[in-house]
């Protein structure tokens, strides 16, 4: 399994990196820490690179390297990198430009499988999409964004599952809210939920929301399946039935003390493009970390 953790700066990305590494460890996944820097317009690209070369000749780091160094130090502190690498310190001299917009710091293999550190420059959604396609990632983890459009774009255009770490407090004991219905995506969500519950060592509330009481029976099978599946991994859980519109009820129930896990919509891309989808609508309203499983 491959996990991509997108960070921006140490002030805004601490919780993203912590949560991301926990998830990566739980799944024993290879993880890549990606810093997406500002887009440089084409008129100025070569001139900016020329200026960067001069900066480096003074032994100063180009923008973005300090963020990766901070991430490296965090990985060292958590002992996620092998001891010899920790001793040698951040290997900034191994920063290699793979293409005009992508550079990578090469690290030795760590305890938690492979860890890579990458800088990209450009529009965030384009760069994440390109990185997910080249690295064949299963989960992309990034910090909460105020922009609703970015959430939409992430779910609509990025092929991996998306974990948005919104208002995540590491000290706080959260619960997982697993939202299920009779759709195909729910089964995948249940499987991913196991990993997340193990990563954070927390219990799960399985919620199903129906607009009509008569439909509750249809969702009963999936909730029971979820409960049984989680019990198999010794994960404590309880089932909640709610009535109403999932778009209103689920964010309310999740509050800011849950990690919401939800399957992606079975709607086709065109329908989603024009009408959006339930997970996207929930994601926009939610005030807690949310994993949309694909």
């Amino acid at each position: 399994m491959n996990v991509l953790i997108a960070i921006s700066s140490k002030h805004h990305s601490e919780s993203t990196l912590k949560a991301g590494m926990k998830v990566a460890n739980a799944f024993s996944a290879s993880s890549t820490v990606l810093e997406v820097g500002e887009k440089i317009n084409e008129f100025s690209m070569k001139e900016v690179y020329m200026a960067r070369e001069r900066i480096e000749s003074w032994n100063f780091d180009r923008p973005g390297v300090d963020v990766l160094e901070w991430a490296f130090n965090y990985l060292c502190k958590e002992k996620l990198i092998n001891d010899s690498s920790i001793e040698r310190g951040f290997p900034k001299n191994t920063l290699v430009e793979n293409s005009s917009r992508r550079s990578e710091v090469f690290l030795e293999k760590g305890k938690a499988k492979n860890i890579s550190l990458i800088i990209r420059n450009g529009e965030i959604i384009e760069e994440l999409r390109n990185e997910v396609q080249t690295g064949d990632y299963d989960v992309t983890i990034l910090g909460g964004s105020k922009s609703g459009n970015l959430s939409f774009d992430m779910v609509q255009y990025i092929e991996s599952s998306i974990f948005i770490v919104k208002n995540f407090q590491t000290q706080k004991k959260n619960k997982i809210l697993l939202a299920v219905d009779s759709s195909k995506g729910s089964k995948k969500a249940i499987k991913h939920c196991v990993g997340i519950a193990n990563a954070f060592n927390i219990e799960v509330e399985i919620i199903t929301v129906t607009k009509d009481v008569k439909l509750r029976k249809a969702n009963q099978n999936i909730t029971e399946y979820a409960s049984k599946f989680l019990r198999r991994f010794n994960i404590k859980n309880k089932i909640i039935f709610e009535e109403g519109d999932p778009v209103d009820v689920i964010p309310k129930k999740a509050g800011n003390d849950h990690i919401l896990v939800i399957g992606s919509s079975s709607r086709g891309p065109i329908k989603t493009f024009f009408q959006s989808s339930t997970p996207i609508k929930i994601l926009k309203k939610c005030n807690c970390p949310i994993l949309v499983v694909k």
């Binding site: 820097g37 500002e38 440089i40 317009n41 008129f43 100025s44 001139e47 900016v48 200026a51 960067r52 923008p63 973005g64």
Partner: peptide, 11 residues
């Protein structure tokens, strides 16, 4: 201009 972008790229 590229000059404006150069100083902006420092963050």
């Amino acid at each position: 201009s590229p000059t404006c972008m150069i100083i902006y790229s420092t963050g």
